[in-house]
Design a protein around this nucleic acid. Sequence first.
DNA 1: AATGTTTTGTTGCAATTGCAACATTTTTAA
DNA 2: TTAAAAATGTTGCAATTGCAACAAAACATT
Lengths: 209, 209
Amino acid sequence: MHKLFNKISVKQQVKLLKLLETSTLSFKKGTVMLSAIKENIIGVILEGYAQIVRTDYNGNRTIIEELEEEMIFGSTISSLSSDECELIAKEDTKVLIIDYDLIIESENNTYSYYNQFVKNLLQITTDIIDEKNERIEILTKKTIRDKLLEYFNIYRKKHGSNNIYLPFSLTDLADYLAVDRSAMSRELRYLKEEGFIETKGRKITLLYG
Amino acid sequence: MHKLFNKISVKQQVKLLKLLETSTLSFKKGTVMLSAIKENIIGVILEGYAQIVRTDYNGNRTIIEELEEEMIFGSTISSLSSDECELIAKEDTKVLIIDYDLIIESENNTYSYYNQFVKNLLQITTDIIDEKNERIEILTKKTIRDKLLEYFNIYRKKHGSNNIYLPFSLTDLADYLAVDRSAMSRELRYLKEEGFIETKGRKITLLYG
DNA sequence: AATGTTTTGTTGCAATTGCAACATTTTTAA
DNA sequence: TTAAAAATGTTGCAATTGCAACAAAACATT
């Protein structure tokens, strides 16, 4: 069950979804779900797998977000500057769509499940702020080395281990750090040569305090 | 009246503050309000002016946030990695402290003013996410020039004007963009020389489409 | 198992940037 | 008003980085 429905019974969930006039949409693999993100909505991936892809003025396409089952997306929540972004179903995908304005404008302050839902959403948004702050913390470092080390430190603090298992490819890591991939590759080599880290595939071991 | 109390009558506000066990603290100019930000709280500046300052391992102090009257702060909301951060009253300052955990854990889902408060807080957090996304958008640009132009474009889109009035000093802008101040100064000169912008103090005029 | 695709590693080189140091102007506070 | 502090502008230079191009490895798909 999704965090969004924490402390809300199944019966109440049904009522809630009706109250918020939600809809469930299904998309075939490969479909572009344009309209879905044009408006001010919150989406939950119920089944399948989708990506948010940006195409910039040069025609370069970047994957902004990978949306797996259970994940949440929406202009309120992610960086969907709706102009350039597309939501694309990479598999057959089922999405729950909730109108954000309706959540906020609804005057149904007496339904306890509705209020719980708003609270759950608040929890999720504050978690997202934490993540954004982490990324900003990393991006404000001036050198690639410092960005890497900051990324490592945050990971270590979170997981309590010197072993880092990258949740994505090194190419994606370079995107996340907003640095050139080959330059990052070079910096990782230096860190290895200087004995700060060891790497094996996507596993990185920190050898420093 | 603060956004946080939007659609909540003064009478209800009083009840709400009691319900959430808030406290109002006063600090003399120059005081370090350490404890205030150590815990999971939301603070509102009722009067005065304060700063959140980080001191890193090198002893370098950076102003992370400038908190004027009406402004809100807290670990849930800003980037207060509480270890290195201090909240400092720059003038005599009065602060409203709200325990975030109490907001979330309270089961008072029947008080409409409480629910409205949670909703207001949700609005504020989503706005903050937008701001963070903007900054990330800027920070992921690779050159100083592109960072500046992205900053300008976001400003122009928001204010609908080619005149930019910087809300802070150029030194602070360099911090915000996470670039060296003198290098930014140089880049601004190039932009002027190439006819893209004009500047006068903290006013920048965009001369391009 | 064979093929095509994506990821990774590497390197030379040019462009960008940070740093340090200093002069000048503006702002702040006594 | 005046002195001190902060912000701004400038420049040379070294360090870091992005870019391009390529080879090799890993992965995915039929």
